[in-house]
């Protein structure tokens, strides 16, 4: 019974973080929530008795994807200000 409760909780958390990732207004926040989603996926793999995938998901989902996406977000933010000074037609608020 307790295991069912935990599984349901985990599934709900997965779906909630997925929706939060896509509905977040701030791009930085979306990426951070996505990293949290990756960690929850790792827990789900452990619950599915797949420790290999859990290890890979932790190293990749939390480590590499996070770095790549955050790097890209900061790039867009910096680039947004550069572009705003040079091009006024397509700059406004794009990086948000």
């Amino acid at each position: 019974m307790l295991e069912w409760f935990l599984d349901l909780l985990l599934v709900t958390a997965l779906l909630t973080t997925a929706i939060a990732t896509l509905s977040s207004r701030d791009l930085f926040r979306a990426v951070v929530v996505f990293i949290a989603f990756g960690l929850l996926m790792a827990v789900a793999w452990v619950r599915l008795q797949a420790p290999d995938i859990a290890l890979a998901e932790t190293a990749i989902g939390a480590g590499l994807t996070g770095v790549l996406l955050l790097d890209a977000v900061s790039h867009f933010r910096r680039g947004g200000t550069v572009a705003a000074s040079g091009r006024s037609d397509a700059a406004g608020g794009r990086e948000q």
Binding site: D52, A54, L55, A56, I60, G63, L64, V67
Partner: peptide, 14 residues
């Protein structure tokens, strides 16, 4: 045991 080339490669890349 659980582990292998993919996980090790990911850690190395990190």
């Amino acid at each position: 045991r659980p582990g292998g080339a993919f996980q090790a490669g990911a850690v190395l890349a990190g």
